[in-house]
Design a protein around this nucleic acid. Structure first.
Lengths: 191, 191
DNA sequence: TGCAGCATGTAACCTGTTACATGATTAG
DNA sequence: CTAATCATGTAACAGGTTACATGCTGCA
């Protein structure tokens, strides 16, 4: 079987944006610099090598605009293979470890789902997201009950911040699932 | 002047833990594996090289227990220099960019503050944290107002998640600042 | 003409991941 | 004795950071 390509956060973000429309490296940079995707690196030293990796892997294709000059503008398009692999990666099961160590990756996956997978898959994602988040939340709550007395003021407060933050995520997932059901009632999704 | 040492997340976590008590690499691993610090790498391939870097830099000192055997146990202690540098790094100003791209680093810094800096510095930190978080929150809110119509269901929901999450952080900071004032009333801290 | 912004790239470096390897100690 | 756990490490690789470099384009 094909080797399991685990995307870097930046690679995944690029693929996701290209799934919306073809773009150049510079277009991607601007998005990372100016929108809510500021968490990703906008440095050319990260973006251009990432694009070349994805191209070598056959998941995107670059075509040169403005051929005549020495400074061409390359526009990248998601290939069929790339789109298929991306859809597959979007629907991978949500594990506890993803919630604990790769929350950013989960949210990134979610943000591109509507256009590429059915409503039922989105609902599955949100349900697993809730389950795992709430599970980890219980671990953290047990931990604070057990260790709180031994911790310093700021140590304890930092732990509470973690709990608050996972709690906000769990709430978000439940609310979003409810909205999803409201806007796409009853019968299954498009895929 | 000394070169500005920017710590890797793992390096900072290790220094912080060693500021509480001396430990071996294996002790650190266990903490990263079993406590709320799961977000850090517990792999030997990350921890042992990090310890060696910090030692070479003179910020920690390793002493061998159980000298006789081929598999020694090394216990690392924070040096005076290491402690001073750590305190300095804890009190560095909180910038907008820290909130946007290095939230984890900020929370890590905060978690070790009580034992090393005065109450007034902790309060400064929380105030700057609130200010910057709320500032970024307003940026995100402007963004969702402007772009929401053009976004897909999941794209919009992902943006909302970001807003929820920063909002939770802002609330946490204000609540924590209030608790701090309650428990350490009026007159300045120890440093 | 000159400058700001468009657009792409490279090189050195740092750090983390994965996988592998090794020996020591202790409980059953 | 032997398995689990303690304890430390290395090598190959991947990906991001910072700093630098270069050329094109439109406009004042």
């Amino acid at each position: 079987m094909e080797k399991q390509t685990v995307d870097s956060p930046l690679g995944l973000a690029i693929i996701g944006l290209l799934s919306i429309r073809p773009m150049s490296g510079y277009d991607l940079r601007k998005i990372f610099l100016t929108t809510g995707m500021k968490a990703f690196s906008a440095s050319p030293g990260a973006i251009y090598p990432a694009l070349r990796r994805l191209e070598k892997d056959g998941r995107i294709e670059g075509t040169v605009e403005r051929k005549t000059t020495l400074r061409p503008r390359m526009v990248f398009t998601l290939s069929q293979k790339g789109r298929a692999a991306f859809v597959e990666s979007l629907t991978r099961p949500v594990k506890r470890e993803d919630v604990v160590r790769r929350m950013d990756n989960l949210l990134l996956r979610f943000s591109f789902m509507s256009e590429l997978v059915g409503v039922d898959k989105i609902a599955d994602f949100l349900r697993a997201f809730s389950t795992e988040t709430e599970g980890y939340l219980r671990e953290l709550e047990a931990e604070i009950r057990e260790y709180a007395p031994g911790l310093s003021f700021s140590g304890r407060a930092a732990l509470k911040q973690g709990i608050d933050s996972f709690r906000a995520n769990a709430r978000w997932a439940r609310k979003t699932l409810a909205e999803l059901k409201e806007h796409h009632p009853k019968k299954g999704g498009k895929k």
